[in-house]
Amino acid sequence: MIQNNSAEIANTVAGRVLTINRVFNAPRSVVFKAFTDPKRMLQWLGPRDYPASFVEADVRPGGKWRACLDSAANGEELWHGGIYHEVVPDERLVFTFAWDQEDGKAGRETLVKIDFEDLAGKTKMQFQQSEFDTVENCEGHRQGWNSAFDRLEELLA
């Protein structure tokens, strides 16, 4: 009976946990700073067609972060933010992520975990965001984050 419950739980989560692994050609401290310094984040955060126009971050456990992604094509602003839960310099970030709703309140929250590992002068990043309400939302975030990480890769080159 317990195995059936475990299988049911696994099936409900399938496709709603986003995992992205990347290797950046820069030291861990440089990559970590790109994730924690708002001035650096403005240079890469957001997909190519929705780059960040505003970023603020109080990078400490309990500290808040907030950002806005802007589409020049249609003038749409996408506000989002969250709270840092874990900050281990050059090693790990854990924070919540929620899009603002039309009334300005935070929408459904996901949890982002990012681990940074030294790889002979390069940085291996393991990114996970979970749990999304739908497979489609998870896939949309996969596309968005990968586009942003492409921009980060270019910035670090």
Rank of each mutant, 00 (worst) to 15 (best):
E131I: 05
T12H: 08
G104E: 02
I114K: 09
D58E: 13
E102T: 09
W44K: 14
G104R: 07
G82W: 12
L155A: 14
G104Q: 09
G104L: 07
A148F: 02
S71L: 03
C68P: 11
L78W: 11
L155V: 04
L152W: 02
A57N: 02
R48V: 06
E77F: 02
A67F: 00
T110F: 06
A14F: 13
P47I: 03
D118T: 00
I9P: 00
C138T: 07
K122W: 03
E76D: 02
L119Y: 15
N21C: 03
M1K: 15
E117I: 09
V135W: 07
E117P: 00
G140V: 09
V31Y: 01
W44V: 11
S29D: 11
I114R: 08
V55D: 08
Q128E: 01
K113V: 02
V30L: 05
D49F: 13
D133I: 01
R28T: 08
N5L: 14
G107L: 02
R48G: 13
E76Q: 04
L93C: 03
E76M: 08
V112Y: 04
F95V: 06
G81E: 02
Q43A: 13
A148R: 03
G140K: 12
T134A: 10
T134M: 05
V135I: 02
R92T: 00
I9S: 06
E91M: 06
A26C: 08
T36Q: 05
E102A: 15
E8D: 12
L111A: 04
G121E: 06
E109C: 12
G75K: 10
G104N: 04
G107I: 01
W99F: 15
E154I: 15
F32R: 05
F132M: 03
A72Y: 03
D133E: 09
L42H: 14
R108Y: 06
N146F: 00
A52Q: 06
S53F: 11
D150V: 05
S6T: 09
L155I: 01
R108Q: 14
S6Q: 11
K124P: 03
F132I: 04
S29G: 02
E102F: 14
P47H: 04
P47D: 03
N4C: 12
E136C: 00
G121Q: 11
P61V: 03
D150I: 05
N5E: 01
A10N: 13
T36S: 10
G62W: 14
V55T: 07
L156K: 15
C68N: 15
R16D: 03
S130C: 10
Q128M: 07
V87I: 01
L152C: 09
K39L: 06
P61D: 04
G75D: 00
Q129Y: 04
G75N: 04
